[in-house]
Design a protein around this nucleic acid. Sequence first.
DNA 1: ATGAACTTTCAGTAACTTCTGAAAGAAGAT
DNA 2: ATCTTCTTTCAGAAGTTACTGAAAGTTCAT
Lengths: 173, 173
Amino acid sequence: MNEERARFENAREEFVSQWGIMGAQWGINRTMAQIHALLMTASNVMSTDEVMAALEISRGNAHTNLKDLVGWGLIRIVTKKGERKEFFEAEKEVWEIFRRVARERKRREIDPALETLRNCKAATENMESTEGKAFHDQMGQLEDFVSFASKMGDRVASMQHGKAIKLAMKIFG
Amino acid sequence: MNEERARFENAREEFVSQWGIMGAQWGINRTMAQIHALLMTASNVMSTDEVMAALEISRGNAHTNLKDLVGWGLIRIVTKKGERKEFFEAEKEVWEIFRRVARERKRREIDPALETLRNCKAATENMESTEGKAFHDQMGQLEDFVSFASKMGDRVASMQHGKAIKLAMKIFG
DNA sequence: ATGAACTTTCAGTAACTTCTGAAAGAAGAT
DNA sequence: ATCTTCTTTCAGAAGTTACTGAAAGTTCAT
């Protein structure tokens, strides 16, 4: 049935496009998110040229973003024996995707932020002025919150999918 | 002590700058995040002109971003009697900030994403091909995960700070 | 009505990010 | 050593987002 094929391709394109928009809103390069969506919904590994063709983008663009995705641990390089070319394959398990994104964002964004908060707190230790005290206090509260949330995130991300769901069920009924 | 004042201003500037960088990484306009940081660490309400001066930005820029922050519910307009001018004041409670950001992001980003996932899933209902089936399945898994996570977020965000902490303690000891 | 004090909008500009295409680099095949 | 196939890099172009400054709009007082 070829009408089915068309419907499938349509849905897939909508997904790729929307995933790209979402990515952009979250501070991820649009093309990178689109390639990710493309590979997540691919039934076979894809080469750089196939990605280029599917999204109508240049080699440089495809290359850079494929490599960035590998850096995020969201896709991996696959080689076929007898072929020199590299192929790419996406992690498809949702829970695993979540874990990797969580880990990377923590490393890239949360940890540096905590660093700053700690600096700012330390730099205003034992101040006399009301302003200084309030600032110091505010930094402390932010630090506590961020580090607490970050720890919770770690805990959840280090659980197995099934266990996390069960735990959530237990808590929230 | 004026050396203390300088140390305080320094720390505050570091915080404002870093909060801006963080915001940008999370898909929030840098200036908006900086104004937020500035107001969070202000001991008094500030006028548009004061914000302009503190960050050395234009009136248009200050105005737009102040109003956007009001839209996010992160700052509020305060009027002083006898004064026509508007002043701004930030929510300072970390937990409350978290709740508001969570609510807005859900509304602006999560809900539309869920919409797309549901569409894509529905559009590939009952497909025969392996590819179609796999796609449909993948959309289902993504939808389940996102909607589950979103519900959990809601639950947590609707708790009082103290209760949330206690709960977390109980779970993760 | 006019003016003063303030807020809002917006066209044009500046800054930044992403993308292209071509050239250079690597590595195996002959 | 040279060719072929593929990967990587990068300068400049295109596209996007954010910012400025000035003009228009609003509101209140006189």
